[in-house]
Design a protein around this nucleic acid. Structure first.
Length: 223
DNA sequence: GCCCAGGTGGGTA
DNA sequence: TACCCACATGGG
């Protein structure tokens, strides 16, 4: 399966699933929180944590920054890895509030490579978290690679099972026109596809509306 | 009880 | 570079 199929796959997914309206958040700041909280974690768990934060009225940088560490940890606990994530969020808030007066817009303004480097410089923020923030909170044209993307691409033969993040990102960005909305939709659609037929160790397509495509793309068990 | 989830960073060879 | 591991909760 050559990389030329990347635009084709988008067309098929878009037709089957329609607009995804991602990221599932009410504000850019929530995107940042969700990007950290969803690290190796189901979104359902992340939503519980976000609901807690909303209930506590701390879904704005200033208010969250004033929380005690124990309070923050208790609120995000359902998302797992709560000690690690609270520390990461604290470091993000230090930059956001300390250097940009709490303005996410200011923080994310500037050239994409510059802002990306600034994000990656924060301990606990890796490439996926940084790119999710750049694309979904800052509308920077950058393609987000996640476990779903890698798994799907691996199963249809467009990459090795352990292909590096940068390699996959390069592949998508060179197969597609530079377009924030396209990158946004594509990533969301891959997640939608993965949830129905590309779960780890369970490559069934029993109820998958894309059974035909899975067959064409050689996704088991229709290979 | 066991497996898994929209990662990241640190350690070792 | 290439693995291995800790990190933690909640749902199937």
């Amino acid at each position: 399966m050559p990389t030329q199929s990347i635009p084709y796959i988008y067309t098929r997914l878009s037709t089957a699933f329609g607009p995804q309206h991602w990221w599932p958040a009410d504000s850019p700041f929530e995107v940042v929180l969700g990007a950290v909280l969803t690290q190796n974690t189901r979104w359902e768990n992340v939503r519980m944590a976000l609901d807690n934060l909303r209930g506590a009225g701390v879904l704005v940088p200033g208010a969250m920054a004033s929380l005690e560490e124990a309070e923050l940890q208790a609120l995000i606990r359902p998302a797992g890895f709560f000690r690690q994530k609270s520390a990461t969020l604290r470091r993000v808030l230090d930059v956001l509030v300390g250097e940009y007066g709490g303005s996410l817009e200011m923080f994310l303004a500037g050239e994409t490579p510059t802002v990306r480097a600034r994000l990656l410089n924060i301990k606990g923020v890796g490439p996926e978290t940084a790119d999710s923030i750049l694309l979904y909170a800052g509308t920077h044209p950058i393609f987000v690679i996640d476990a779903y993307t890698r798994r799907i691409c691996s199963r249809i033969g467009v990459c090795a099972p352990k292909a590096p993040y940068a390699e996959l990102q390069h592949m998508f960005m060179h197969a597609l026109p530079e377009d924030v909305q396209l990158y946004n939709e594509y990533h969301a659609l891959l997640v939608e596809l993965a949830k129905c037929c590309c779960t780890k160790n369970k490559p069934q397509c029993n109820a998958c509306p894309l059974e035909d495509m899975c067959r064409q793309l050689h996704i088991p068990p229709f290979a």
